[in-house]
Design a protein around this nucleic acid. Structure first.
Lengths: 190, 190
DNA sequence: AGGCGACTAGAAAGAACGTTCTAGCGATCA
DNA sequence: TGATCGCTAGAACGTTCTTTCTAGTCGCCT
């Protein structure tokens, strides 16, 4: 079978978080999805639901971070931005518009109920913004400007994901990506 | 007491949706918050939880839409954009960074589980985009450009709200608002 | 006065939830 | 061989959830 039990749990949890959020993620669904007996879950994650969510968010975050770093290794280009937004469009469409962002969904519905969940989402967002900002700095942007643009792009990315999901259309992602490209061009020009 | 029972239920539900999402919203919490006996809820909303959520989302949406229309009556200005983003910053900070967007939160965590919820969120988003786009058209933008910019602003607004909430800081909202102003200036200039 | 509809009030039911517990299996190591 | 450890396996528990149901209360209309 693919991967250890712990990794399977994390992967299934990540999918459930993306679809139903932290409150909607059930341990029964995790054990079913991971083809694992119910009791095994608490063996791998003694901290229970909260620990699983944090692990899934953190793991998915570092994976996404690596992808983003690779994508922007040669700088933040129009192609990189469209690839980034297009990636989520593909993911959404292929899942029947149900699989949103593994970080964004619990960031909204779980932040008030669990401090560790909020904290791990914050860490992922900060890391993504940082990765983007560093690439922008390499392109000549001042640190503050790079941070601001990176924050805007990540915010637009999460928001466009939300709109695309509720509208069941990639259009908001494509539109927003194009706007981010305009913002990028202006920032690099000055 | 302030308002009828139905309105109180909607208001409490809107707060719970904003904080805990659709899956995290409990009917018990609604009856407590509205100072209403548990059974009364099903008298006012025979359709149960789903109906309450849809009503709260729709009501909050039309209220927000009216506010946005008023704010952009003289066109979409820098001041209007900053007021819009600042409104959410105030709301977040005053609630101890727990009260996010009544539409955005269930849009993510409830869309997969309830089609009516997804649909009502979609309707609100479309209405907000439309309001913004119409104001932009009045300022001379072509319809397609107005739609695109409006979509981007709403997406950025929701995403920045997410970042601000998890980071417990208004900074992402302020930063993103400034970026939207730049985007607006460029669009109006061309 | 009498009846009716709107609303209050909360118990009951049945399912699902997260957590804890005990029992058992199989491999590794003394 | 016997003991130990990692993990499987799922029952049990108490809580919470949504929905439904039955009474009871209040005001209004005829």
């Amino acid at each position: 079978m693919s991967g250890g039990s712990k990794e399977r749990i994390e992967r299934v949890a990540a999918d459930l978080l993306a679809r139903d959020g932290y409150n909607g993620m059930g341990l029964k669904a995790i054990s079913d999805g991971a083809s694992l007996p119910y009791g095994s879950i608490y063996h791998h994650f003694p901290s229970g639901k909260e620990g699983i969510a944090v692990a899934a968010i953190t793991s998915m975050g570092s994976h996404t971070g690596a992808l983003l770093a690779e994508l922007t290794a040669d700088g933040v280009t129009d192609a990189a931005i469209h690839a980034m937004f297009g990636f989520m469009g593909e993911r959404l469409q292929r899942s029947g518009w149900t699989k949103g962002c593994t970080v964004g969904t619990p960031a909204l519905d779980g932040a008030a109920g669990s401090e560790p969940v909020r904290d791990s989402c914050d860490a992922v967002f900060s890391s993504l913004v940082d990765t983007l900002a560093q690439a922008l700095e390499r392109q000549g942007l001042a640190r503050a400007d790079a941070d601001d643009l990176a924050t805007t792009i990540i915010a637009a990315y999460e928001g466009a994901t939300m709109l695309a999901r509720t509208r069941r259309s990639r259009a908001p992602l494509d539109t927003t990506a194009a706007a981010m490209c305009r913002l990028l061009r202006d920032a690099l020009a000055s």
